[in-house]
Design a protein around this nucleic acid. Structure first.
Lengths: 192, 192
DNA sequence: TCGTCTGTCTAGCGGTGATAGGATCGGGTC
DNA sequence: GACCCGATCCTATCACCGCTAGACAGACGA
């Protein structure tokens, strides 16, 4: 069975290559530039090979999104762990989230803007997505306030961050007030 | 000069038809279904005619966005006017905003998700967009709180609403808590 | 009535995501 | 060692996309 195992290894390696390359192109030139032809050329295979790994372009976006969710969860947890006290943790979390969105726009889009065919907020939601939400919940649950459902509070806080991130990035919010907006959001939403 | 005037009237009418039809297709089947070919067929002209009115598909999206901004401003103002007191006005505003986003998804996308080539948050921002922001500011400025810049507060509140609207609509937030999220947001952000 | 000129159309460019079907290459069997 | 067969990959193609060049016709002013 060694031959088959080697083939599976190679196949898995190529799949990782596809996802990594798609992400690379997307970060450099935007998702519009991630065409099946360009992607195939970069990995030095023909176009149809992509379809033996993924059902279509949507699934490739979804794969990038899952990768990104794990990274974002780690970034958020690291930022929170480095801060002292609930209030400081929330500030650090907000900054980490917005930083991630700004510095990894393509991955962020794959997660929260584009359709990657992923299921959110259900039982069969992929683990990385659940875990990313859990990472937010860990710090935000502390400041939800009495009688407020931590999950619902996290949803609201997350939505606000998402709005700030996307509207700012698309030029719909003036960049000069970014820091003041973040501070105001934390001030008002978090119950210390 | 009557002939020329008639021609200009007809031309303006056709331009309105293009925008209205684009919007119609988008609301029914999504923006992906708004192709220049389909759009041209629906208005019973050939494809290149679109390009004598708009520089490209992006500008058509922009035109729909401007229409939508005017409508949203009116909806928000109407909701606020029907409420008594600053706090009630903000609640009404939030509901009106989220209702608009949910019931006019294509127009909402044209305004805040897609690239319609419009300039936001600058001096040369189109009037309808400025006015839509002003409509939010009118009610939200009342509850910004002391020492908080009303514009910045409006940006934060708007971002939160935008996050709720888009994440909910794409299935990334569980629908059953929608009302609780809205209440929580207003409770925390608005200073009565 | 006759040129001109505006306006519209047909046809086509280079690109997209996705797929059908033929060629090829390697492993397993005799 | 020879052969067969199945998995694997590629070429070629489909229908469609946004956009544009250039031919054509019809209405206008002289």
């Amino acid at each position: 069975m060694s031959v088959q195992e080697r083939k599976e290894r190679e196949r898995a390696g190529r799949e990782r290559l596809i996802v990594a390359t798609a992400r690379e192109i997307a970060e450099q030139q935007g998702w519009d530039a991630v065409t099946t032809r360009r992607l195939a050329e970069r990995i030095e295979y023909s176009q149809p090979v992509l379809y033996s790994h993924f059902r279509g372009k949507r699934e490739i976006i979804g794969a990038v999104a899952l990768e990104g969710a794990a990274e974002m969860a780690a970034a958020v947890r690291a930022a929170a762990a480095a801060a002292d006290g609930p209030r400081a943790r929330v500030t650090a979390l907000a900054r980490a989230y917005l930083d991630f969105a700004e510095s990894h726009p393509a991955v962020y889009d794959a997660m929260f803007l584009l359709d990657g065919g992923l299921v959110f907020a259900k039982e069969d939601t992929p683990e990385p997505l659940k875990d990313a939400f859990a990472a937010l919940l860990e710090s935000l649950g502390e400041v939800a306030g009495d009688g407020v459902h931590p999950g619902v509070f996290t949803e609201v806080f997350w939505s606000a961050l998402h709005g700030l991130a996307t509207l700012a990035r698309s030029g719909r919010l003036p960049p000069e007030y970014a820091e003041r907006r973040t501070e105001l959001l934390v001030d008002r939403l978090a119950v210390v």
